[in-house]
Computed example of a mutant assay.
Amino acid sequence: MRKALVTGASRGIGRAIAEELGRDHHVYAGASGDASGVVAKLGSAEPFEVDLRDPAAIREAAAGIEELDVLVHAAGLYPKGSFESLDDAQWREAFEVNVFAGIELTRALLPALRRSNGLLITINSGAGFHGFEGGTAYCATKFALRGFTEALRLEEAGRIRVTSLHPGRTDTDMIAADERPKMPAEAVARAARLAVDAAAMGATLEFLRIAP
């Protein structure tokens, strides 16, 4: 059975992707806390519980994974507020979770992905293309994630495939207070499935922008 690791799998987009890939993959369900809820819903799964703000913990958790076909970075934070209102700790935590954790995990699991000619998917955002008020930290992390993803795709061409998904407003607790139209998290999961199926057929979807 093919294997996939999904960070942020306990809720929102990450959970929807874990459930989608769980139909035909063994899933490492990434969570900063208890992952038992999503693991119980999947046919073949195990928890990957790690503090994504701790690089050493990420390396230790990933050390036991020798085979991997799909890696999905779906964990993320959205520190809301104006630039003036956000403090240094909020900025650092946003980059630690949204950017550096994905980089550290990719570095740790790159050999396994290379062995399978596997697929890396980053869950980016429309905020990876444009800024908006109240989103300085979030937009900065998503621009950084997009740059990392695009450069890695070029460097790893022929060894792994790299896809960046850019969902618009999605119905998760991250933006629960936003009353504008939103799409379900399952729509993003279906886009992730499209990238996985394309990779299995020898093609790469470089990026997908998904709108509600």
Rank of each mutant, 00 (worst) to 15 (best):
A61P: 04
A62W: 04
A62T: 15
A63V: 12
A63W: 02
G64A: 05
G64C: 06
E67K: 14
L68F: 03
L68T: 07
D69F: 01
V70L: 00
L71N: 14
H73D: 05
H73T: 04
A74S: 08
G76D: 10
G76R: 08
L77S: 02
P79Q: 12
P79K: 09
P79R: 11
K80I: 06
K80E: 15
K80D: 11
K80H: 10
G81M: 05
S82Y: 04
S82R: 15
F83A: 13
S85P: 04
L86S: 15
D87C: 14
D87S: 13
D87P: 11
D88S: 14
A89H: 09
W91I: 00
E93P: 13
E93K: 15
A94H: 09
A94W: 02
V97E: 03
N98S: 10
N98T: 03
V99I: 05
F100Q: 04
F100M: 05
A101D: 03
I103P: 12
E104Q: 11
R107W: 08
L109S: 03
L109R: 02
L109A: 11
L110A: 06
L110H: 08
L110P: 00
P111N: 06
A112Y: 09
S116I: 07
S116P: 02
G118N: 08
G126K: 11
A127V: 00
A127Y: 11
A127W: 13
G128D: 13
H130Q: 12
G131W: 01
E133N: 10
E133W: 07
G134Y: 10
G135D: 02
T141F: 03
K142T: 01
K142D: 08
F143V: 11
F143H: 15
A144S: 11
A144F: 12
G147W: 06
G147H: 07
F148Q: 01
L152A: 00
R153T: 00
E155V: 03
E155W: 00
E156L: 03
A157N: 05
G158P: 00
R159C: 11
I160E: 02
V162K: 04
T163I: 03
T163S: 09
S164Y: 11
S164N: 04
L165A: 05
H166V: 09
D171C: 08
I175S: 14
A176F: 01
A176E: 14
A177Q: 07
A177W: 11
D178N: 12
D178T: 04
E179F: 08
R180E: 03
P181S: 09
P181F: 12
K182F: 08
A185P: 08
A185I: 07
V188N: 02
A191L: 13
A192H: 05
A192D: 13
A198L: 01
A198M: 03
A198E: 13
A200V: 05
T204W: 08
T204Y: 05
